[in-house]
Write a protein that binds this DNA or RNA. Structure first.
Lengths: 221, 221
DNA sequence: TAGATTGTTAATCGATTAACAATC
DNA sequence: TAGATTGTTAATCGATTAACAATC
């Protein structure tokens, strides 16, 4: 009957979702300085992006601003955090306690972004029983049982790419619903499982190609 | 006068550049199995993407296929590798030998993707003088001199985000032209400097948001 | 009131997808 | 020849950018 309070069902596009954390980071710094109100043009100037895009991005979170004045910075931060789900604590298991896995365990502040790594798994006997940043490393053969009992839905995958698919099959069989794939492998998963790929190789390719294109355009001129 | 051999100046879009390494990875596996010829529909089926998009992506590299038959797999691999610049060895300095930095030094095969990390830098006395995966860790105060003398143009940035900007200023002052930014910071750089951002926080946000949206759509039904 | 900023609607831009002709 | 696949051109889709009305 009534207008729902915070139930804007505008689903954000991927580019928007990537920009929102950047805004948030800047807004938190601004709030620390004691600023109470902020406008889209100011955000855009600081972050070097289009002010009308900032307005659009903010609108998808459902926050309301006031013409001429801007947004209440506290309300804005709250709304973005809530929209992005940062105030929940999604529990996750990390699989593969190698170099990258260890780095991810020590990575600061994931919890502030809604992700809590509650345990790590490996098959290397030397690593099992140790811990890193308060996260215990357990044997992989405990994964399935623990995932089910603790109802963990998210896995961070940092195993060697040679075993990425077989490990993935186990994750899926254990009821994992979302996989953050930090291996270069293209994972095969059932339709209901979400995969977020972060490929170092794709990123390095992009960087080098941009540099190459810059060189070419300069040599042409 | 003559038609240039390999000088298709089609500059690829970012999505295309992200897909090409995936194709390449699959093609190399297929070649190892002894396959000599491959068609876009086969690649699309295996990688679960649209075959016409595969055709378009491959066309941007300048490779020629034959109707009904497909592409010569050897020629295809060569062309993609050449197009992406994998046969060059772009030398890079890594800055920040912390957890993530160490992981990147140990990351396998960057060289196969055209990136060669030739030295690492840090300010922590305990780390300086040590090495990892054959890469020596030097004091940051040697960066500028070495970057200039070796004409290194690329930096991999894995420092704590609190010092990301000040380190970036030094990189730029040392003549670095391209920065692979693995910190969550939004770097301020002059226009001629290329930045490739790989933000763990943006990626984790995307994953959790996708999961959240899936939950919402299911609870609605 | 005047002017700046939000918020919405329209126009542009670019990438994906579809259609179809060329060709092996 | 018949049929599958490339390669190109057109249509669709979605995101960005621009335009403008509403409003503080």
């Amino acid at each position: 009957m009534e207008a729902p309070q915070n139930t804007k069902r505008t689903k954000a596009s991927e580019p928007t979702l990537k920009r929102l954390p950047r805004y948030l980071h800047y807004l938190q710094k601004a709030q620390d300085k004691g600023i109470l109100t902020i406008s889209a043009p100011v955000i855009g100037k600081e972050l070097q992006c289009d002010p009308t895009q900032v307005v659009k991005d903010l609108a998808t979170t459902g926050v309301k601003g006031r013409p001429r004045i801007g947004y209440n910075i506290h309300e804005l931060i709250q709304t973005i955090e809530s929209f992005l789900g940062y105030n929940r604590a999604n529990e996750a298991f990390l699989v593969g306690a190698g170099n990258l896995g260890m780095a991810m365990m020590s990575y600061p502040d994931f919890q502030r972004f809604g992700l809590k790594i509650v345990a790590a798994f490996d098959t290397n006997r030397d690593k099992i029983g140790r811990s890193r940043s308060g996260i215990n490393i357990l044997h992989m053969n405990k994964f399935q049982d623990l995932a089910r009992r603790l109802q963990v839905r998210i896995a961070v995958l940092t195993v060697p790419h040679t075993v990425a698919q077989e490990v993935t099959d186990l994750l899926v069989a254990s009821g994992i619903e979302a996989i953050w794939n930090l291996t270069p492998s293209q994972l095969q998963v059932p339709e209901h499982v979400i995969v977020q790929n972060t490929s170092m190789y794709a990123n390095v390719t992009l960087l080098l190609k941009k540099l190459q294109e810059k060189d070419e355009s300069e040599s042409v001129q």
